[in-house]
Simulated assay, not measured.
Amino acid sequence: MNIVLFGPPGAGKGTQAKELAKHYNIPHISTGDILRANVREGTKLGMKAKEYMDKGELVPDEVLIGIIRDRLQQPDCKNGYMLDGYPRTLPQAEALKEILEKIGKPLEVVLNIDVPDDELIDRLSGRRMCSCGESYHLIFNLPLKEGTCDSCGGKLYQRDDDKEEVVRQRLEVYAAKTKPLIDYYSDRGILVNIDGTGSVEDVFRQICDVLDPYRK
C-alpha cells in the first residue's frame, strides 16, 4: 500500500505512523529523516542538499524529490510506503505524482487525520515539560504534585511553542498550507478523512478499516 499521511500538530500523526508502519510492515518515510540520512551518508543528492542547508536555505524541490525517489526504490518499500511531511505544496504534489508513476508506485490513499482546532489547542497548550525529559499534561497526564515532576522533583514548564497563541498560529499556518493539498487529493478521489478525536486505539482501528483493502 502506498500512502501519504497528513495531520495537524497535536493530531497524533507520529503515534499512528509508528504503529501503522509496524502493523503493515511498510516503512514510515519522514522527509526530514531521509534528508538528514543522505547528508550523513554523503550521497550525491545529500551533498547537494547540504549546500543549501549550510546557507540556511530551503532544499530545492528537485533535490528533495530526487532523494525521495531513491528512498522509495529501496527493498523495504516492496510492500509499500507511508510518506510523512511530503508533499507540502501543490508543485511538490505534482512532482511526486510524476516520480511515483515512473517508478510504478502510484499513491493509493491519502489519509488526513482531522481534529477540531479547539481540541488541538487543548492537547498542545496543556503539555508541561521537565528539564529531565519527562512530560505531563494538565488533562491527560497530571503529575502527582501540581507543577512538579514525579521523577526528579523539578519544576515543570510550558514550552514557548505550546503556548495557546503560538499553537493557534501554528494551526493557521498548517491549514493554509495543507488545504490546497487536501482539495487536490480529494479531487483525485484518494483522500480519506479520519476522525482523530477518539482514543489512539479508536483512530488506529479507523485507519486500518481504510487500509486493509489495500494490503498486499
Rank of each mutant, 00 (worst) to 15 (best):
E146L: 05
D84H: 09
V203A: 08
G12P: 05
Y86D: 00
Y185R: 09
P60W: 10
R159S: 03
Y136P: 07
E101Q: 15
P87R: 11
E101S: 11
L107S: 05
P213M: 01
K18R: 15
D54A: 10
D114W: 08
D76H: 13
E101P: 00
K163L: 12
S125I: 01
L111E: 03
Y86H: 03
I67W: 03
A37L: 09
D54G: 04
Q158S: 11
I139E: 12
R123H: 07
L90A: 11
S131L: 13
I194T: 08
V63C: 04
D183C: 00
E134R: 12
Y184L: 12
R215E: 11
P60S: 14
F204W: 08
K216Q: 14
L144D: 11
K18L: 12
R88N: 06
A93K: 10
Y185S: 05
D195F: 02
R69H: 10
R123C: 05
Y157G: 03
D61G: 14
R123F: 04
N112A: 10
K22A: 12
G32T: 07
S131M: 12
M1E: 02
S125V: 01
L45M: 06
F140Y: 15
Y174K: 10
V210I: 11
E164H: 05
P27T: 02
L144P: 00
G14A: 08
G80N: 03
L171R: 09
D118F: 10
V109Q: 07
K105E: 05
L111V: 06
V109R: 12
P91M: 10
V63M: 02
Y81I: 03
